[in-house]
Amino acid sequence: MNTTSTTSATPPENVQPDLLYSEEEEALRAAVRDLLTDHCDATGVLSRAESDTPHDLALWKSLADGMGLAGLLVPEDRGGQGATHREAAVVLEELGRAVAPVPYLTSAVVATEALLACADGEDVLASLASARRIGVLAVGLHTAPGASFATARVTDGALHGELTGIADAAVADVLLVPADDGGLYAVEAAAVTVTGQTSLDLTRPVATVILDGARGRRLGDAEPAVRRALRAGAGLLASEQLGLADWALTETVRYLKDRRQFDRPVGGFQALKHRLAQLWLEVVNLRAAARNAAAALSAGQDTDVAVAVAQAYAGQVAVHAAEEALQLHAGIGMTWEHPVHLYLKRAKADSIAYGTAGAHREALAELVDLRAP
């Protein structure tokens, strides 16, 4: 007897995401880690941090152009790889483990997401996806997804104003500038003045962008584009923080196994075991939160809640992990020559990037209707 299937091809709503890594994601991780092992050693990152050019553009070219990672979030029919936020999260985990001084988060995630929300600008999007150019959203790195953001003034078709705290602006080829007329404009970097600011994180410097009559092309509405970009940035930042925390834990355990005191490994002392066990639990919980945020962004379901949960937790764990690494590496951890200080500075800077933990807790309370009385 013939039967007709009534099963819908549309997946059911509110399906619990699979937070485990797929084989493809593990293969991507291995490839990125191999590249970073060969081209992003601690000595090189430290030497760049002390120079006037902290960004490693050769490494960026290998990652973005050679491996095609700049266009992961861009659909294939628009010149990209057609991957999801889950794959981008894996890349950011590895970049966090290496504190790699490349503009992946700012260009391949935040600027790209802003462009994907715009009605115009396919040429700019394609140039970022192919790594021909680096794009930066000219919104302060501290800005949370739901917060107000500074805009440039539009006068007779020209942009004026001063925007501060713009991450990776020093290496940008194009800036995406929100303006007071509600538009998002593409402005060539050569048309603005970029002045470096004192930055705690030496591997992701921030700068002031001064627009004095710069001309730009309107790409779309700023509000939805900026909101989408900051939400993706905050959600995937948790994966970078996860990679950083995981490195700190792994390296600390390794060091304490090797270092001996009273003719026994320091890691064998009960008090240190307890500290490491607590840190391990925090990192495991962070992994779940970060993976959930990436999965939610990929599926487009419960994204605001998942991102808020991840960022309400990620900052404190990454900072705690870096602080423990510095302290438990003892005297060597306090020296500039050891890379742990770079991880602590990145963790501290990340803890206020795209909104503080407090801001995300407030947002989460609004989302789930658990506001304080």
Rank of each mutant, 00 (worst) to 15 (best):
L28Q: 00
R29E: 11
R29L: 12
A31R: 13
R33P: 09
L35M: 10
L35P: 02
T37G: 11
T37H: 13
D38G: 14
D38W: 14
D38S: 15
H39R: 13
C40S: 05
C40D: 01
C40T: 05
D41M: 08
D41S: 10
A42Q: 07
G44M: 09
V45G: 00
L46P: 01
L46N: 07
S47K: 14
S47P: 10
R48V: 08
A49Q: 08
E50F: 12
E50I: 13
T53D: 12
T53I: 12
T53E: 15
T53R: 14
H55C: 13
W60C: 02
K61L: 14
K61C: 12
K61S: 14
S62R: 15
L63I: 08
L63T: 03
L63E: 03
A64D: 01
D65S: 15
G66S: 05
G68H: 01
L69M: 06
G71I: 00
V74M: 07
V74D: 02
V74F: 04
P75A: 06
P75F: 02
D77K: 10
R78L: 12
R78F: 09
G79Y: 01
G79W: 02
G79T: 03
Q81A: 15
G82Q: 06
T84G: 10
H85C: 14
R86K: 10
R86S: 04
R86H: 07
R86C: 05
E87G: 05
A89F: 08
A89I: 06
V90E: 01
V91D: 02
V91W: 02
E93W: 06
E94W: 06
E94M: 11
G96K: 01
A100K: 00
A100T: 04
A100V: 06
V102T: 09
P103N: 09
P103A: 11
T106P: 04
T106W: 09
S107W: 03
S107Y: 04
A108L: 06
V110M: 10
V110H: 02
V110Q: 02
A117Q: 07
C118Y: 01
C118I: 05
A119Q: 14
D120M: 13
G121N: 03
D123F: 12
V124E: 05
L125M: 09
L128D: 02
R132G: 15
R132H: 15
R133P: 09
R133L: 11
I134D: 01
I134C: 06
L137N: 03
V139G: 04
V139W: 03
L141Y: 14
T143K: 04
A144D: 06
A144N: 05
P145W: 00
G146E: 07
A147V: 08
S148E: 13
F149K: 02
F149C: 04
F149R: 03
A150C: 11
A150M: 10
A150T: 12
A152Y: 00
V154T: 09
V154I: 08
G157N: 08
G157D: 06
L159N: 00
L159I: 07
G161D: 05
G161W: 01
G161N: 05
E162D: 15
T164V: 14
G165T: 08
G165Y: 03
A167N: 10
A167W: 02
D168G: 07
